[in-house]
């Protein structure tokens, strides 16, 4: 349930952005959530509903989740592959020297006001 902690971080960052832009109400927050970020989108949106409605700024504000597919890169053959499907081992050349290129994001993409 670290989704609740993440929701508190989102609220803090959105409040700050709202202050900077002189915004009184936010109607949606758009998140980029990587496929292997260990965040469960359903838990995140559930926690969000509970916590966001306690804030005047975020009453009825919707949390939208964009899922970012996880892609790894192989140092052995310099090719990319799908992380969730193949794990740590490169499907092209079998090398274990691979690293995550993207798919670990937990970021606020934008807010809609």
């Amino acid at each position: 349930m670290h989704e609740l902690g993440i929701v508190f971080y989102i609220i803090r960052d959105v409040k700050e952005a709202a202050r900077e832009h002189d915004v009184e109400h936010v109607s949606a927050v758009v998140m980029n959530i990587g496929e292997v970020s260990m965040v469960v989108p359903e838990y995140l949106t559930d926690c969000w509903r509970w916590a966001a409605d306690k804030e005047e700024l975020l009453k009825d504000c919707e949390l939208r989740v964009n899922t970012i597919p996880a892609v790894s890169f192989c140092d052995g053959c310099q090719q990319e592959f799908e992380t969730v499907r193949y794990g740590k081992t490169c499907p092209h050349c079998g090398s274990p020297d691979t690293w995550l290129l993207r798919g670990n994001e937990v970021e606020i993409k934008e807010i809609i006001v």
């Binding site: 993440i6 971080y9 989102i10 803090r12 960052d13 959105v14 952005a17 832009h21 915004v23 109607s27 994001e105 937990v106 970021e107 606020i108 993409k109 934008e110 807010i111 809609i112 006001v113």
Partner: peptide, 16 residues
């Protein structure tokens, strides 16, 4: 009027 404000920031950035 709907306005989009781009943030593009990791939620862990502040904690880090």
């Amino acid at each position: 009027e709907v306005k989009v404000i781009e943030i593009k920031k990791s939620v862990f950035a502040e904690n880090e």
